[in-house]
Design a binder for these strands. Sequence first.
DNA 1: CGATTACGTCAGCCATGTTGACTTATCCGT
DNA 2: ACGGATAAGTCAACATGGCTGACGTAATCG
Lengths: 181, 181
Amino acid sequence: MADVIAGRAASRGGSEAPPIQPDPDAPPYDLMELLFFAYRDFVRDVDEELAGFGFGRAHHRVLHFVDRNPGLRVADLLDILKITKQSLGRVLRELVDQGFVVQREGASDRRQRLLFVTERGDALALRLAHIQSERIGRAIELSGPEAGDAARRFLFAMVDPSEREQVRQLVALGRPRGGLG
Amino acid sequence: MADVIAGRAASRGGSEAPPIQPDPDAPPYDLMELLFFAYRDFVRDVDEELAGFGFGRAHHRVLHFVDRNPGLRVADLLDILKITKQSLGRVLRELVDQGFVVQREGASDRRQRLLFVTERGDALALRLAHIQSERIGRAIELSGPEAGDAARRFLFAMVDPSEREQVRQLVALGRPRGGLG
DNA sequence: CGATTACGTCAGCCATGTTGACTTATCCGT
DNA sequence: ACGGATAAGTCAACATGGCTGACGTAATCG
């Protein structure tokens, strides 16, 4: 399979010798690309498993966040995923129809349909999480636990400032590891 | 906007007091979610800019990798993006039609259509990269340069072992910063 | 010369996102 | 108690970007 890249770019805009120190104004292409490659492989991990239920990645995202946040409101989920009510509606209906998620009327506000996973839903969510955590576990072994911790801080800092408080709270439960900064 | 999460999960499977040390077998949910949130916001950065040309994220990925790897072969691009020839064909045609990318016959193998960005293509690629690098720059400021370096190592380790050599070479050019391990 | 390779393309389908309009039930403030 | 705002669901139509399968053409390689 196509393994070698044919030609490499000359440094942008000059014919001088390549600088040893990188241009501080040059975009951090390496981080951009590593983010792409890491995410690409990370999400592909569970595709097969999902396909077995006729599900896709959208179903996984919903199942995951409901599993991790029992009683989540629909509006919260929309805000997490940044998709429309209609898009969510489709995948949510399928998850409910197939018995992975249930909706319960809110106790204090009966307009709300709070989301919970069923036993079946929890089992699937956990299985998918285990698959993906193998890759993460190997990555931490390879790069060292400090790199994992630093990656946590870096990734958190990549989140939009306006979203950080929400993300901090969402992520907090699974994180008795020290603060995010 | 929905800001507070209604209910939080009890620790899975028990009613004891929450452990201070996390279960070492528990999936690293925080990293999984941070990866999602960071990627979500990172790719959204350029959506508006792309829409101005009638482009989407698929166009961006193609433009980026061609810009960074002039003379890239179509087969290489397919292998990077992990999509089919037909999917790539559509977006590539649009990029070519609108004068952002050109294809040149390979010198040694005339079956190849090597890919290059035009001046126009390079300008757009650079503008998009600048937008995204603002977020990364702020993240590095916030989390510290060591966190950025560690994130590089961690993200590289997240890449599939079978893909690492290719990724290492692709990422190498923009990286006079020290090895990836 | 024949098999393989690199690339392109037609046709159709699927998953998942979008807008816009509308309904229903409920809550909350006056 | 009423009326506006809010939470959620739904219908319809459409866009984007994946996919499979089948084929065609040109060039290379053994």
